[in-house]
Simulated scan of single mutants.
Amino acid sequence: MDNFSSYRENRGFNWAAFISGILMVIAGLFLLRHPGKALHAFVLLFAIVSIVQGFVWLVFYSRFRYFIPSSWLSIVSGVLDIIVGILFLYSYDAAGLTIAYLFAFWFLFDSISGIIFSWNMRKISTFFFWLNLILNILGLLIAISLMFNPALSALTLIWLVSFWLLIFGINQIIAAFVNR
């Protein structure tokens, strides 16, 4: 009974959800309006994350080198992450192109995996087998077109992130009013 009474006392407007929702909607609209700046922001973010991850791998090595026999791999990974991050900081164009190709390859590998997985579904349901197969073949065609047009791949990435921010931001704004 105590849980219910404390729940009712905590009800009210959720300012954190409201503010984060507004910021996400603004960010999503900004990305849609300025895709070039958005790609530069992605490159900068990826570079920073890569450098930080590199240092995390190096710290991992220093802490676990005596316990884990293959911990030397963390040195290799850490150094490579730091190098990639630094290269991305100094060459936005090459980094943007790399991210665009990574995005296209991600779609390609997911679509191929989906096609392989769909063959297992035919034992379960003929309808879902065909639906899954057709959707993954469409995904494969999209992936191939993104690989031949990296600018489209980069723009698609920005659109997807923009729409995700808009949808999640609107959801957060609605969630702020739910607890009233």
Rank of each mutant, 00 (worst) to 15 (best):
I83T: 11
S125N: 04
V25E: 02
I83V: 14
D110P: 14
S113V: 06
Y92D: 03
G169E: 02
Y92F: 10
S62W: 07
I134Y: 03
D2T: 08
L146S: 13
G85M: 08
I51W: 10
A41P: 09
I116Y: 02
F148D: 14
D2M: 11
L140P: 12
I124H: 01
R122C: 02
A154H: 06
A47R: 08
G169C: 00
A175L: 10
G96Q: 15
A175P: 00
H40F: 05
W164I: 15
F107K: 08
A175K: 07
G12I: 15
F103P: 08
K37R: 06
A154E: 01
S50L: 03
E9S: 10
L131I: 07
L58F: 05
I68G: 04
V84S: 00
T126N: 07
M1Y: 12
N179P: 13
I48S: 01
V56C: 06
S153N: 15
S113N: 11
D93F: 09
A151S: 06
K123W: 05
F13V: 13
D2Y: 09
F127S: 12
N14D: 15
F107C: 05
A94M: 09
V43K: 02
A47K: 09
R63D: 02
A143T: 10
F30N: 14
F67E: 07
S71T: 01
W159C: 14
I51M: 00
S5M: 03
A47N: 07
A47D: 02
P150Q: 00
S91A: 15
T126F: 15
I134G: 08
F107Q: 07
L89R: 03
I83S: 07
I75H: 03
Y92I: 14
R11A: 15
V76N: 05
S74V: 02
E9D: 07
I137E: 13
V178H: 11
N120W: 10
L58Y: 10
A104M: 08
L133Y: 13
L45F: 05
L140E: 14
N14C: 11
I22E: 01
N3R: 04
S111D: 00
I134L: 03
T98K: 11
L135D: 07
A16S: 06
V161H: 00
I112E: 06
A27M: 13
L80D: 13
I115W: 01
H40D: 11
I22R: 05
G78A: 04
W57M: 09
V178D: 11
F148K: 10
